[in-house]
Design a protein around this nucleic acid. Structure first.
Lengths: 333, 333
DNA sequence: GTGAAAGCGCTAACAG
DNA sequence: CTGTTAGCGCTTTCAC
């Protein structure tokens, strides 16, 4: 409807060459004299020509679009991954098509259709519902954070933080700080991440002589400050006694700490608390939170590298990549 | 390179009709018997056909892609706007192409090229650097949050929160709560938002008999927790005396509060503090922050509505839309 | 070294 | 009611 932008045709006419030649200099393929190159480039600059990537994709059947599917861009961890992924892709000449799913199956499905209709060359699937549709079967995919359901048919790799080691470090740190009675706060979760953390923490606790039981495993129905606050309050009101707490994610740790403060329980004086993730709110508190730091940038970079490799070679490496985490001691331990 | 997805041709062959007919039923345009419709739809379903939107765009020169340009998706306020915008667009049959610029001019430029090469039908420009390139001149645009530089040539509308009223409410609230000596904490900012808030606060303060001067206007070089913490600490160490503080954004308020706590100054006992924005960290604290709530969903919805109207009519309304804010009293006042 | 031409998936006249 | 056809911007053989 609107005026068509300047095309290869316009610049061909203006430069007095054929469109084929223009295409050649744009892509640096085939032969052309440096004279014509000069002339063509000049016209391109003058006319502010920008390639129509849709036409190119249509013709070549290879797009430089990568879909990024993410449940909730509002979550700091995810948004950092997304941001870095987009940047990394851009550096490699790929554009990112970012899709929010709000953890909603139907929305996810719609987004997949959009991605398919845009002919994406690959997919980065962050903490998804793992219901990748058949129609996207054949395109290279890397999952981040949540372990995908293994399907041998698919070109899927997996990248995650070292949740196992992180949880172990947390337990060890608590013991180092003198804790004798530790507890763990985690959400009931259908996905892998928190379960891995709890299991690893629990295992290490047992090894260090403080086996967990149901009394010191506090389970919250969602990841929510308020739920953490409430369950913690309840725990102490019922006479619960602990001197160390590991929350499988920072928001839960923060909710728990505020509950303790409200009850007059000193942190770290009476209870030492450590979280997981290192969201910005963790450090921006009057008593900054000790936590296990994740590296969203590294998750992003690794994923992009693997994905592009997959696209280039057409080959799945069936990779599982683990990004190290780091224990950050601040003032709650 | 990869196998081409099923196209209109495939389904035409399978249904025993021409591609034109298939196109007609897909778009619900022109005539076709309900029999053929039935048959075509069946094949479409069976073959999992998804329209190639790039080909469609190429042909019709009208895409259903809207570019969303945002400085930093990691900022909660922005990411909420982006999320809602994408959702709202989807409901209207448009897809969102989200671009991070990291407040970086060069990156912004690259992203604009990508958007142009994708033939976007419109632009939502959130708190941008306002350096919209000529090449995107003609496409409908709505700016959110930061006031764009007016250029009569362009199809630009502007949507923002009622910063003016918000700041006024904050001042009035402080007075209501008994404050006699108020201060304001804001970043030095080349853009409009914070300046508007400070000016409005300052003006209302004067009207209410507490004129501001340079001593009670604390200016921080960036929006940063640490900077707020430091400047506040410094303020009290130099013997500053106030009983009320308005920070033009929540993170600054939070930094200031923690500084006061560290100095043994009670909030709200000695100083009442109010922020602006209502980020999630504002309510998730041991002493939840009073603040002026913004409505990112409403900013998003209004922007989408205006943009789509502009696209549909091809007509700029040169609109300036103001979304109301609300004072949320929590426990820091 | 360069141009002509075909065709990617799709829509929109135009014929029938 | 349906089919044929041109052409969107681009790449890529194939001639010259």
């Amino acid at each position: 409807m609107t005026k068509r932008p300047t095309s290869i045709k316009d610049i061909a006419r203006e430069a007095g060459v054929s469109i084929a030649t223009v295409s050649r200099v744009i892509n640096g393929k085939g032969r052309y004299s440096s004279e014509t190159e000069e002339r063509v480039r000049k016209v391109i600059r003058e006319l502010n020509y920008v390639q129509n990537s849709m036409a190119k994709t249509l013709k070549t059947n290879r797009s430089n679009l990568i879909g990024i599917v993410v449940p909730n861009i509002t979550n700091e961890f995810f948004s950092q991954i997304v941001q870095h992924t987009q940047l990394a892709l851009l550096k490699h000449g790929f554009a990112a098509f970012i899709c929010n799913t709000n953890e909603d199956r139907e929305l996810e499905h719609i987004q997949f259709n959009v991605l398919q209709s845009m002919n994406v060359a690959g997919l980065i699937y962050i903490s998804g519902l793992l219901s990748l549709p058949e129609s996207l079967m054949s395109i290279p995919t890397v999952c981040i954070d949540r372990k995908p359901i293994v399907d041998t048919m698919r070109n899927v790799s997996f990248v995650e933080s070292d949740n196992l080691q992180g949880a172990r470090l947390a337990m060890e740190h608590l013991v180092d700080r003198g804790c004798k009675r530790v507890a763990c706060l985690s959400p009931e979760d259908q996905f892998s991440t928190h379960n891995i953390r709890f299991d690893a923490f629990s295992k290490r606790a047992a090894e260090l002589g403080q086996p967990m039981d149901e009394r010191n495993h506090l389970i919250v129905s969602r990841v929510s400050y308020q739920d953490a606050f409430d369950i913690m309050t309840d725990f102490f009101e019922k006479g619960g006694k602990i001197d160390g707490l590991f929350a499988t994610t920072d928001w839960l740790a923060i909710g728990a700490i505020d509950a303790m403060k409200a009850k007059g329980i000193r942190v770290p004086g009476s209870v030492r608390v450590i979280g997981f993730g290192d969201i910005s709110s963790a450090s921006f508190r009057d008593v900054p939170l000790s936590t296990v730091r994740q590296y969203p940038e590294k998750l992003a970079d690794a994923s992009v590298e693997i994905l592009l490799e997959q696209i280039k070679t057409g080959h799945t490496k069936e990779e599982h990549t683990v990004i190290p985490v780091e224990l950050i001691q601040r003032q709650t331990t």
